[in-house]
């Protein structure tokens, strides 16, 4: 990878649209791919809104029209051939991700940097599916992407030094710093965070404290910026559940078994911020009727 101009972002969910927005705000051309046209439409609407609203929380301001003009949204994975970097952000499900990586093997340029954005799945499983697995790296972006200045970078066993340098250069272009960790389930952050969130949910489930009080304790006593249950809502309760399932399956350790309250909320469609309700209410629209 000699120059960096075009980034393909696969998956237009919460993180994918954040990565697309951030790249476009940094003057990169973005090909945003999702198999669902409705999700792409929602992603573009949200990117327009966030590009405007984030001015409140950071120094830089961006013209939403200009940001959107750099993003080409498409349902066709075949459109990624021009990309210097591909960032895959599809749902945390091994079979779905594997199918997408088979597509990357076919349609991405052979010298493109391929980044897996996964909460917990080892990136070696993706690298094995593409030609030149040494160009595969894990880039674990956090939500909200355009407001977060650090990324957990995962070095697989096959990842070359050049790949790592290119990945860190890509992050610098986004004004972010990368911290490199080894390729083990959950990496560093989620190996610690997911059982912590799960235990906080158990605290609510067992009636030890309300969700509000658990979060207030972490904010007020420990100086956290955000409590564990608001964090779970921000990540998405479905993503938390799937991450725990992946950690549970890969380690066999019962400490990763998801709390029944988490399972119930997800089955009822209460996914946190993205659905308007999780442990807390997040909507604006329903109150405005």
């Amino acid at each position: 990878m000699t120059t960096l101009q075009t980034v393909a972002v696969i998956g237009a969910g919460v993180i994918g649209r954040g990565v697309a927005q951030d790249c476009a705000e940094h003057e990169l051309d973005v090909v945003l791919v999702d198999r669902d046209p409705a999700i792409l439409e929602a992603a573009l609407a949200e990117i327009r809104q966030q590009a405007r609203l984030y001015a409140m929380l950071r120094k830089r301001t961006h013209d939403p029209v200009r940001v959107l003009s750099r993003i080409h949204a498409t349902t066709s994975l075949e459109s990624i051939g021009a990309a210097d970097v591909v960032v895959e952000n599809v749902t945390e499900h091994e079979e779905i991700k594997a199918a997408v990586w088979d597509g990357l093997a076919r349609w991405a340029r052979t010298d493109a940097l391929l980044a897996a954005n996964t909460s917990c799945i080892p990136i070696a499983s993706f690298a094995a599916r593409v030609p030149r697995p040494e160009r595969v790296v894990g880039l674990h972006f956090m939500n909200p992407v355009a407001l977060t200045t650090m990324v957990e970078v995962v070095r697989g066993q096959a990842t070359h030094d050049e790949t790592l340098s290119a990945a860190l250069a890509f992050l610098r272009r986004l004004d972010k710093t990368g911290i490199v960790v080894a390729d083990r389930p959950g990496f560093a952050i989620n190996r610690v965070l997911m059982p912590t969130l799960n235990e906080a949910i158990w605290v609510v489930h067992d009636g030890v404290a309300s969700a509000v009080d658990v979060d207030r304790l972490f904010i007020g006593c420990l100086g956290h910026k955000m409590g564990p249950l608001a964090t779970a809502d921000l990540i998405g309760l479905d993503t938390v559940l799937r991450s725990l399932d992946v950690l549970h399956a890969s380690s066999g350790d019962p400490k990763f078994a998801p709390c029944p309250l988490l399972v119930r909320l997800v089955s009822e469609g209460h996914l946190g911020r993205k659905s308007g309700r999780g442990f807390f209410f997040h909507g604006a629209a329903e109150e405005a009727s």
Binding site: L53, Y54, A55, M56, K225, M226, L234, E287
Partner: peptide
Amino acid sequence: SSLFALQLVVFVEKQFGITVEPEDLSL
């Protein structure tokens, strides 16, 4: 958290029928 400010902007716009301009986007 400061992210709640984004929800407040959207709520105020919808509820009161006003547009929050770029220069109004201050905490």
